[in-house]
Amino acid sequence: MDKTLSRDGTAIAYRRRGQGPPVILVGGALSTAATEAPLARILAPRFEVVTYDRRGRGSSGDSGPYAVGREIEDLAALVAAVGGRASVFGVGAGGALALEAQAAGLPVDLLAVYEPPYTPGASGAQFKACCTARLHRLLSAGDRGGAVELFLSVTGVPADMIARMRRAPLWRGLVSMAHTLAYDDAVLDDGTIPAERFASVTARTLVVCGGFSTTRARLSAHALADALPRARHRTLTGQTRELAPQAMAPVLAEFFARDVYLRQAS
């Protein structure tokens, strides 16, 4: 993997695949560049696809203290590494990070997000506050496995499956990234959609959700699309929170193909 330095000197590890207009994939909670590799391989024949380890994960560094602004600077360093502009696709909390980055001025013309886990409404804010408090208690107590289990249970993974995951080799890797769950939690702030801040998002944006996702996720995606100045919404039939790369790739290819036109017209 290649590395670039973020503004605070943190090394961010990334990998490029393919040739064409640059597309950066921003992973969600407990994901690494390897998590996004299947989607990257499908898109690579048409785009230069960049996957990366967000700070605190995989081969990237983790200079502290954490701040959302530092993760925005990480993404800005990657955009600079691919020529100064890029299209971006973010999954889950990675989608929220991509939106925050564009609202802060990241040079992105086209932005797609899949189910950023906002929890709008009074009950949603209360739920998010409860989860945040529990997460920080677990991490402060050094219970990294408990923090991972909390995240998985909140996202709908059944208890018996979590028990099987605890016995599987992948569990060690998840636990090694448990501290970054606090980073994703910070990106989501209080869980509400920051409509006032997102009024600054200038990129054409595609907000996607799964047809079989939870009612909360689908309603949140619609609300997010309504809050963004230049957004449209799309539902992928048959998809859930566990997005299939084969289902998402053609949607992104069609959407990001507009980047070619935008670059030629500018």
Rank of each mutant, 00 (worst) to 15 (best):
T215I: 11
A44H: 03
A199F: 02
E254V: 12
A203K: 01
V26P: 01
K3M: 07
M1R: 12
G156Y: 08
L39T: 14
A141G: 15
G94A: 02
E71T: 04
S153P: 00
Y118F: 15
L252Y: 03
D2N: 12
V148I: 11
M177C: 08
T32V: 11
T215V: 15
R7Y: 03
A257C: 05
D226M: 12
T32F: 02
D143E: 15
A223E: 12
P21Q: 14
A98I: 05
D143M: 13
G95P: 05
I162F: 08
R204S: 14
P116L: 04
R218V: 00
L5F: 09
I193C: 02
A81W: 07
A257V: 00
I42S: 07
P38Y: 09
R41I: 00
G9L: 10
K128S: 08
T180W: 01
R46S: 15
E254M: 09
L152M: 15
R15W: 05
G142Y: 10
G95N: 04
H136D: 13
A104H: 06
V82N: 02
C130Y: 07
P245Y: 14
I72P: 01
L262Q: 05
P45C: 05
S200C: 06
P229V: 00
L150M: 12
K3L: 07
A203D: 08
D190C: 01
A101Y: 09
L106G: 03
V207S: 06
L150T: 02
L181H: 12
P229F: 01
R41N: 11
S59L: 12
A129S: 06
A101I: 01
S87Y: 11
S153H: 06
E254N: 10
G191M: 02
V208N: 04
F212L: 12
V148Y: 00
A182L: 04
G211N: 03
D259S: 12
L181K: 07
Q239P: 02
V108Q: 14
T237Q: 11
V79D: 06
G56M: 08
V68I: 12
A203I: 02
A159M: 08
P250A: 12
D259K: 10
R172V: 09
V108A: 08
R164F: 03
V68G: 06
D189R: 15
S63Q: 09
E242T: 10
A96P: 02
R16I: 02
S6I: 03
R17K: 09
A163H: 10
T132R: 10
L138P: 00
V50E: 11
R41C: 00
D2M: 12
A203H: 10
T192Y: 00
R41S: 13
G56W: 10
D160K: 11
L43Q: 12
A195N: 04
T155W: 13
Y52K: 07
E71S: 10
G56F: 07
F47P: 01
L150W: 05
A168T: 09
A231I: 08
A76H: 14
L174C: 06
F256W: 09
I24T: 04
R258F: 01
I162H: 06
R57S: 13
S220G: 14
P229M: 03
R137H: 13
G124H: 01
L224T: 11
Q246N: 04
R57W: 05
S6A: 15
G191I: 00
F256V: 03
A93R: 00
D185W: 04
G58T: 07
T202H: 15
L236Y: 09
A133S: 07
G211P: 02
D143H: 09
T215A: 15
V187W: 07
